[in-house]
Design a protein around this nucleic acid. Structure first.
Lengths: 246, 246
DNA sequence: TTGGCGAATCTTGCATGCAACAAAAATACA
DNA sequence: TGTATTTTTGTTGCATGCAAGATTCGCCAA
C-alpha cells in the first residue's frame, strides 16, 4: 500500500505496539548488565532521545521496570536504577533459596520428558557459554536454565516469583562472573547444572531440593569471596562519576 | 457502571503526583472486592471519565495493576480484569502456602517487641471486623495482619512476594466470606490469628511454620467447600452482564 | 565564607491530539 | 441466504503541549 506517508524521514519508527516494549527491554538489559549503574538517575527525556521515541513509551517502560524492582520511582523526581543493596544481599539470598528449592522440587515432581530434552539443551548451552568469552551469554544461559526448571514445575505463581528473583540475581551474577573471568577462575562455573538435571530426571524430589540449596549456598559464598578480593577498581556500589552536570 | 468515587466538582483536580495513584487504588479496590468482575474488559476512556482525569494516569494505573497481575493486558486491545482462575487455584495455594510458612517462620525468629504490640492490635482489629457486617473490613484486616507478620520477619523480598499473593488472595477470600456471611457461618472466622500470635511471641519457629501451614490448608478446604455449596447465584467466573455495549 | 530567600530553569505528571490497529457494520457478490 | 470485501466506527499507542513541583543559581545579609 504505502511505505512512508508523511513520517519525517530519518527516524524509523517501531511498529505500533512495540515502542514501549523496545525501550523496556533495552533498559532492562542495560540495568541487568550493570551498564546502567545502580543508583544512577534515569532521565525520561534523555532516554526518549536515546531510543528516538517520545516520553510516553519511556514512562511506560519505567513503570514496568519499577514493578520488576529494577528501578525505583521517586515521586515527582523521576526514577533511579535500583541500588544493589549489599545490606539486603543475605535477605535476597534467603528469598532466592526458598524459591529455588521449591521450584526445583516441583520440577522433579512434574517434569515431562519434553522438559528433560529442553533442560538438557539449556544445560549444554550454559556449558558452551561458560567456555566463551561472552559474560552476558553466561548470564542469559544461567537465567534461562533455571527458569526452564521452574516452568517444568508447572506452577505459574512459583515460576513468576522465582523468575523475578532470577532477574535480579543477574546483577549479582554479573559482578561475580566478571571477577571469575578476570582471575581465570571460570572453570568454577563449568557443569553447574548437570546435577540439577540428574535429580530432576530421576524425579528425586529431596535430592533436587538439596542440590538447589547447595547451589544457592555456593553462589552466595563465592559472590562474597569475590567481593572481598574484587580486583576491579571500576566497580563501585554508588555511581562515582557524573559529577559535572546534574 | 456506577458513580464516580471522588471529584465533587468538575475542575477540582488531584494534587500533582496523585491522579495515577488515586485511580490505581480505586481500581484495585474494585477488583479485589469483585466489584469489577474477573474477565470484565477495562475501557481507558470510560475509567478516565469515571475518575475525572485524562487517559494518561489511567494507563499508568492499568500498567501497575497489570504488574500486580490484577489485570491482564491484551496488546492493542486494552486490558481485562484478571480472571479468577479456578484451574490455577491449587497452584496459587501452593505458592501462598510456601510464602506464608516462610514469612511466619521469619517473624517468629526476628520479631521485636514492638512487632508484637502491632500484631496484637491487628489481631484485635481482625476479630472486631469479623463481628461487624462489613466484609471488606474483614478482608483488609486479614490482609493487614498477615502483611504485618511478614514485615516482622525483616525480609523485604519475602514481604513483597508474600504481599503480592495476599493481595490476590483477597479475591478468593471475598468469595469465601460472602458465603460465610450468607450462611451464618462467620463464627468460623473468629480468632483465626491468635495462634499465630502465640507462636510468634514464643519465638517458636517450627510451631509458627505448622500453624501457617494449617491456616493455608484450612482456607483452601473451606473455600472449596464454599464453592460446592455456593448459595449465591450472582457469582459467576465469567462476567455475565454488560452485553449491551462492551 | 556561609546561610537564607527568591527567581530562573529543569523535570515530571497530566491533558490533548492524532494515527495505527482491531472490531463491527455495511456492501457486494455468488 | 451465505460469504467475502470494503467501509465505518471505536479504541489503543504514541507524540506533543503545558503547568506543578523540584532543583539550581544568584543575590544579599550575617
Amino acid at each position: 500500500m504505502q511505505d512512508s506517508p508523511k513520517t519525517p524521514s530519518n527516524v524509523v519508527k517501531y511498529r505500533k505496539g512495540s515502542s514501549a516494549k523496545e525501550v523496556c527491554e533495552g533498559l532492562r538489559r542495560r540495568i541487568l548488565t550493570l551498564d546502567l549503574r545502580p543508583g544512577e538517575p534515569i532521565d525520561e527525556t534523555q532516554i526518549s532521545e536515546m531510543f528516538g521515541v517520545s516520553r510516553s513509551p519511556v514512562r511506560e517502560a519505567i513503570n514496568r521496570l519499577s514493578a520488576e524492582r529494577l528501578v525505583v520511582a521517586l515521586p515527582n523526581r523521576g526514577a533511579i536504577v535500583a541500588p544493589v543493596d549489599l545490606i539486603g544481599f543475605p535477605q535476597f539470598m534467603a528469598a532466592l533459596d526458598l524459591q529455588q528449592r521449591f521450584a526445583t522440587r516441583l520440577a522433579a515432581r512434574h517434569r515431562s520428558s519434553a522438559d528433560l530434552v529442553r533442560l538438557e539443551m539449556l544445560a549444554t548451552e550454559y556449558n558452551e557459554a561458560v567456555r566463551s568469552p561472552d559474560s552476558v551469554r553466561v548470564l542469559e544461559a544461567n537465567h534461562d536454565f533455571h527458569l526452564a526448571v521452574a516452568e517444568a514445575g508447572r506452577n505459574d505463581y512459583v515460576t513468576r516469583q522465582y523468575g523475578e528473583l532470577l532477574s535480579e540475581a543477574r546483577r549479582y551474577l554479573h559482578i561475580h562472573i566478571e571477577y571469575l573471568m578476570a582471575t581465570s577462575g571460570r572453570g568454577l562455573l563449568e557443569d553447574q547444572h548437570l546435577d540439577f538435571l540428574d535429580a530432576i530426571r530421576a524425579r528425586d524430589v529431596e535430592e533436587a531440593d538439596k542440590i538447589a540449596h547447595e547451589h544457592t549456598l555456593q553462589f552466595e559464598e563465592r559472590f562474597l569471596r569475590a567481593l572481598r578480593h574484587m580486583p576491579d577498581p571500576n566497580f563501585q556500589i554508588e555511581a562515582p562519576e557524573r559529577t559535572p552536570d546534574r
